[in-house]
Design a protein around this nucleic acid. Sequence first.
DNA 1: CGTAGCCTTGAAGGTGATCAATGTTTGTGG
DNA 2: CCACAAACATTGATCACCTTCAAGGCTACG
Lengths: 238, 238
Amino acid sequence: MDAKTAMTSLSLEEKQKIAKFELFRGLDFNIVECLLEGHSVKQLKHREFFYLAGDIATRFCLVLDGALKLIRHSPRGDDIIVHFALQGDLVGALLMNQSVPIASPISVKSMGPTRIACIPRSTFQNHWRTNLHLQNNLNQILYRRMSNIQDDKTMFTSPLKVRIANLLLRHVDLTKEDPIVPLSLTLTRQELADSLGVAVESIIRSMREMYAEGILLRENDRAQEYVHIPKLLKLIEG
Amino acid sequence: MDAKTAMTSLSLEEKQKIAKFELFRGLDFNIVECLLEGHSVKQLKHREFFYLAGDIATRFCLVLDGALKLIRHSPRGDDIIVHFALQGDLVGALLMNQSVPIASPISVKSMGPTRIACIPRSTFQNHWRTNLHLQNNLNQILYRRMSNIQDDKTMFTSPLKVRIANLLLRHVDLTKEDPIVPLSLTLTRQELADSLGVAVESIIRSMREMYAEGILLRENDRAQEYVHIPKLLKLIEG
DNA sequence: CGTAGCCTTGAAGGTGATCAATGTTTGTGG
DNA sequence: CCACAAACATTGATCACCTTCAAGGCTACG
């Protein structure tokens, strides 16, 4: 096995960090170790795939660092992003719950360098599926994900600028007092377009206006973008 | 307690029928009886609410007959239907899994006369939450619901006629050999519009074309609508 | 018999799509 | 380190699709 495909395991130290993820709340450390049974850590480069749509899903993964995007392909060739998975999020867990391995309906691609823990299906069957407390935590995650996607659907009828605002709002730290906060996840214009199901050009034109209105800000030409929360909220409220 | 609000319980016979729902697959009958603990049967008229958005959810329900629609309200006053719940489907179960009762983000309204079994939160906490097998079944339902709504999102970029076709396809019995099958759930134009997030007029104009193309059919002016499956599929494929 | 909900049609208008061209940034291999 | 490719960003012009508004008809139901 060469360096490229070398698979490492999590150190004890790292496992202890992971045990603090919300997903594992209320679980003993030795249980968490069981849940990671047979795992392997993978360092994905930018734009690398974890699943391709149609692959039989024999493993799922926990995001350790970085971000993944979950992509559906439309018959017309459009790619639609249905979810962004960040640190502590699970990808493919719902597929593991099926009685036999099934084809993944989505592709999963990294956004920038991303570290994940790949966990085999058997571990899910033996430990995840049988742990009641964990199932409840999983449901919390699902509930949030379902809420978000329902929200997207509800926003469908709003003008594009409002929909962009709504999407960006999910990727800022709202606990800060500051009215101006940076985006915690950098999305390209293309990713915003794919997430909202519109053309890139439309995103660009809408965001240009949002910059002009001071809703979005950029530190003298640097890449990092900031949002003005009160203005953003005002835009969404209407 | 007058006739209007009289609450009845399920007969033994009916419980046995319910025990055959996919949701309860693999569960003993006496377990199913526990899962219904404290339930009450409600006969909803047309357009009656089970939840109103914002209500604190202290119970959930199982659809016995008829149909419910789950509605989200946008800030602009548009109503968006996020799901149709038919026989055997659950409404509000995800809300029960939260540690404390929370406000429902959706309204739930009957479509025609509908019979439901209302089940108190405590029963969920005591019996549903603690039953591993049931949790797995619940996840199956969630998976399907999530798939559907992701599908909707993916279809977003398609022309309206394709999106209508895709929605109708979910409400026909595909096990039949016949190319022409009736819709198992009658949706008004308004409901189609609310489900797809478009204007009623757009639905009407699109469907007029679909009638002209023989994709949709109607028995000499009768209300029951039929779809021509192969043509429907061809439209979706592109 | 009047109201409420749903269906239908037409005309006018706007939002976002499409197409084409070009600039910018990033990463890769010679 | 430079050259080149690939991904990403931007702009303008034109156009299609869907929305909005207004008006009217149909059906069910108390």
